[in-house]
Amino acid sequence: MYRAPSTMSLLCLEASARLGSFTAAAQELHLTQGAVSRQVQALEGRLDVRLFTRRRDALVPTDAGRYYLDEITPLLQRLERATVNVTAFKGRGGGLALSVGASLGAYWLIPHLPAFTRAHGEITLNLSTRVGPADFKSGAIDASLEFGDGQRPGLRSDFVAALHLSPYAAPAWVKRHGARVDASTPRTALLNHHTLPDAWEQWFSFEQIDASPGRDGPRFEIMAMALNAAVAGLGVVLLPDYMAQDMVQAGRLQRLSPRTWRYARGYYLVYPEESQRLPALQTFRTWLLGLSQAEGAQTDPTATP
Rank of each mutant, 00 (worst) to 15 (best):
D300A: 02
A172D: 15
Q39E: 09
Y107I: 10
Y267V: 14
L127P: 10
P114R: 03
P240L: 06
L288P: 08
F159Y: 14
G101I: 02
A17L: 06
G154N: 05
V60D: 03
L256A: 03
W287Y: 01
P171V: 00
D149G: 10
Y67C: 04
V40G: 02
R55K: 01
R180I: 11
A172Y: 06
T87Y: 05
D216G: 13
Q249C: 07
D142F: 07
Q41A: 09
Q77D: 02
A230H: 05
W108D: 04
V231S: 10
A230I: 04
L234T: 08
A88Q: 15
I209L: 14
Y263P: 08
Q39T: 01
S292H: 11
V270P: 04
Y263E: 08
L269P: 02
R180G: 05
L76P: 11
P167S: 04
P111Y: 10
A232S: 12
Q151Y: 04
M223R: 07
T32N: 12
E221Q: 11
S128C: 01
A58D: 07
G235S: 06
G233Y: 10
P167M: 01
Q208G: 07
V49A: 02
D241I: 08
R78T: 05
S166Y: 08
A17C: 13
P74F: 13
L109P: 06
L69Q: 09
I72M: 06
L104F: 15
Y271Q: 10
S138Y: 05
Y67E: 13
R55Q: 05
S275H: 02
L79G: 12
G150N: 05
S21T: 13
E274V: 07
A140E: 10
D57F: 05
Q245P: 08
V36R: 04
D300K: 00
P153T: 00
T302S: 14
L196Y: 01
R152H: 08
V181K: 14
R130T: 01
T73M: 10
R259C: 02
Q245I: 12
V60Y: 00
Q202H: 06
T117V: 08
T260S: 01
G93Y: 02
E274H: 14
P301F: 04
A42M: 05
R78Q: 14
R130S: 12
P61N: 14
